[in-house]
C-alpha cells in the first residue's frame, strides 16, 4: 500500500474510533434512561445475533436503492438528451420539471404507496423520483454548456446536429453527469427508506419502525448502521467507477 493509502486508512480508523468513543460517552451520559441510546456493544450484539433477519431486510432496501438508481439514471439521461436536442420539448417540459421538483417527494409518498402497493414498486418509484432530477439537471446543464469553440469547429467541419451531439456535446457533458450521479447516489437511500416508513412489509425502514414500536432501540441502531455502511460503500463504488470511466477529467482532490 502506498504512503498516501496508509495515511488515508489511518485517518479512517481514527475517525471511526473517535465516533465510537463519543457514542460510548453519550451512552454513559444517558444514565438512568438507558432505553434512549444503546451502547456500541449492545448494537453489535444485535447485529450478530439477528444478522439473518437484518440481512434479509437489508437486501430488500438495497434492491430498491439500486433499481431506483438505475431507473432514475436512464430516465434522467433520456430527458436531458431530449431537452438538449429539441427546443420545443425544452419549452414545454422544463416548467413541468421545475414544478415537479417543488413538490416534496415525501408529500407524495403516501400516494405512491396507495397506487403502487406495499411492495417494491412504490419504493423504487420514490428512489427513482429523488434521483431523476439531479441527474437530469446536471446532465442537461452539461449538454448546454458545450465550449462554443468546439461548436464552431464542428460547424465548419460540416458536422450534423446529431453527429455533433454524439461526438462532442455528449462526451463533453459526462463530467457534469458524473457530478449529478454522485449527488443522486448520496440521496438515493432517502427515497427508499422514506417509502418504507410510509408503508411496507419489508426493508430496513420497516425493520426500524417495527423495532421502534417495540422499544427495541439496539435493533434500530443495528439497521441504521447497516444502511449507513451500504450508503457509504455505494457512494465510494460509484465515485471510483466514475473516476475510472472519465480519466481525462482533472482530479480536484480525492473525496473518498
Amino acid at each position: 500500500m502506498s504512503r498516501d493509502g496508509l495515511q488515508r486508512l489511518g485517518r479512517t480508523v481514527v475517525t471511526v474510533a473517535v465516533l465510537l468513543g463519543l457514542w460510548q460517552i453519550a451512552f454513559h451520559l444517558t444514565g438512568e434512561r438507558r432505553f434512549l441510546l444503546p451502547s456500541p456493544a449492545q448494537t453489535l450484539e444485535v447485529l450478530v445475533e439477528r444478522h439473518v433477519q437484518i440481512l434479509e431486510h437489508a437486501g430488500v432496501t438495497f434492491a430498491e436503492i439500486l433499481l431506483g438508481l438505475g431507473l432514475g439514471c436512464v430516465l434522467g439521461v433520456g430527458t436531458a438528451l431530449l431537452l438538449a436536442s429539441f427546443r420545443p420539448v425544452r419549452r414545454w417540459l422544463m416548467p413541468v420539471l421545475v414544478v415537479s421538483q417543488a413538490i416534496p417527494v415525501f408529500a407524495i409518498a403516501p400516494l405512491l404507496v396507495l397506487w403502487l402497493g406495499y411492495g417494491l414498486g412504490s419504493k423504487v418509484a420514490m428512489a427513482t423520483l429523488i434521483i431523476y432530477f439531479p441527474v437530469t439537471a446536471a446532465f442537461f446543464d452539461g449538454l448546454r454548456r458545450t465550449d462554443p469553440g468546439w461548436m464552431d469547429l464542428a460547424r465548419v467541419m460540416g458536422g450534423g446536429r446529431f453527429a455533433t451531439l454524439r461526438h462532442i456535446r455528449l462526451p463533453a457533458a459526462l463530467p457534469a453527469f458524473a457530478s449529478g450521479l454522485r449527488v443522486a447516489t448520496a440521496v438515493a437511500p432517502i427515497g427508499a427508506v422514506v417509502g418504507e416508513w410510509v408503508g411496507s412489509s419489508a426493508g430496513l425502514g420497516y425493520l426500524m419502525l417495527q423495532a421502534n414500536a417495540r422499544m427495541q432501540v439496539p435493533m434500530m441502531f443495528a439497521a441504521l448502521f447497516v444502511l449507513a455502511v451500504f450508503a457509504v460503500a455505494l457512494y465510494t463504488a460509484v465515485d471510483v467507477l466514475l473516476r475510472r470511466a472519465l480519466p481525462w477529467v482533472p482530479d480536484d482532490g480525492r473525496t473518498s
Binding site: D152, L153, M157, G160, A163, T164, I168, L174, W248
Partner: peptide, 27 residues
C-alpha cells in the same frame, strides 16, 4: 478549414482521434 486561438482538442479523445474528428462528424 478553421483553426482557432485555442487548440480546441477534445480532452477525452486521443491525438489521432482528434485529427480524424472531421470525418467522424460527417459520418
Amino acid at each position: 478549414a478553421y483553426m482557432a486561438q485555442t487548440d480546441l482538442l477534445l480532452p477525452w479523445a486521443t491525438v489521432l482521434e482528434n485529427v480524424m474528428l472531421g470525418a467522424r462528424l460527417r459520418g
